[in-house]
Computed example of a mutant assay.
Amino acid sequence: MKLEDIARLSGVSRSTVSRVVNDDPNVSAQTRQRVLKVIEEHNFAPNLAARSLVTQRTRMLGIYIPYLVGNLFSDPYFPTFIQATTARANEQDYDVMLWLKGNADSMDHLRRRVLDNRMADGLVLASTPRHDGLIQLLLERGKTFILNGRPWEHEDSINYVDTSNVRGAQQAIEHLARLGRRRIATITGRIDLNSGYDRMIGYRRGLEDMGFKLDPRLEVEGDFTEVSGYLGMRKLLPERPDAVFVASDHMAIGTLRALREAGLTVPDDIAIVGFDDMPFATLANPQLTTVRQPVQRLGYLAAEGLIGLLEHTITAPYQVSLPTQLVIRESCGFPA
């Protein structure tokens, strides 16, 4: 069934049907009701591409995550974020498309696919590395987007949702120091990601605030994967730390494995604090003390903010930083 058929059955012009389909306010309530009744009776569904030519909108959001599919879904952070973003978008009658890096993709090719695609009204950029050029290209083209994570540049003008990563890491170090730990090491996340960089800064500030000197031998860079947590802990073992702040729960699982292999006990020999509070943190042995960040809330607010910007109900810049919470479990012991 075409617009002309709806118009004939409704007794109105084709242009009036088009205005009803596209929610034009310049249609009387009586006419709108008559047209909608015919549409419902005949299960009419307007073609998305045709409608977008009229409205210049697709009601589609894009999520850009520049990681390989295998890496993405091995860590529950991104599935949790994607699920929350999609759920909020669907509540607002938006659909979501996902851009990931294929095995054969170069980063330039992935960015080009995103830029040349006209289906998405706006974009959510998740965990974008420091030198990813997509942000600058989007700014130059005037595209509407929001970052999951504080931007490296243009912080006063770019839309973003983030967690208080610096403060969360400081809380972890303060807790370990109060427990009497004196050689507190860290396995950082990727330093070219703001989450990894900020948690490293929080670690250093926490040590300084507690009166400790920084020791570069106690810092090892990871990449948020379980393997990097395992390898990072093995590098730290010769330095004999009595505590380790690990910048993600996923890496902390690898850290625990390395310590078991070395015959060390957690928390008696070495205390561990992670970051994220993923569901598996309570399944670890011992249960993982960690800094909780509200991942679902981040995804929800990313979609809500982007839609508000697109529909002009929110004024740019839209910027949110959510607090963290230290969740104390078995892996670092409890204060006396």
Rank of each mutant, 00 (worst) to 15 (best):
R181W: 12
P241I: 02
L236I: 06
T282R: 15
V227S: 13
T289V: 02
L283D: 11
A169F: 10
Y230K: 02
Y197S: 13
A247G: 06
H175Y: 15
F245S: 06
I272S: 12
L264V: 00
M200N: 09
E239S: 10
A247V: 05
L237G: 14
L176F: 10
L214H: 05
M278T: 11
E261M: 01
L259A: 05
V246A: 04
I270F: 10
L283Y: 13
M251H: 11
E226H: 08
D276F: 04
G196M: 06
D268A: 15
Y203T: 07
E208W: 04
T265M: 11
Y160H: 14
S248H: 02
I272C: 13
A271G: 13
R190H: 08
P241E: 03
R199A: 09
A258Y: 07
L193N: 03
G254A: 01
Y203N: 12
P238E: 12
T265A: 12
F275L: 03
G229V: 00
G206I: 01
R234N: 11
R234I: 03
L256I: 09
L207S: 00
E208R: 10
M200R: 12
E208F: 08
D215P: 09
G263A: 00
A271M: 01
M210Q: 15
R257N: 14
A258P: 05
R167P: 05
D192I: 07
T289F: 02
V266F: 02
V161A: 04
D249N: 12
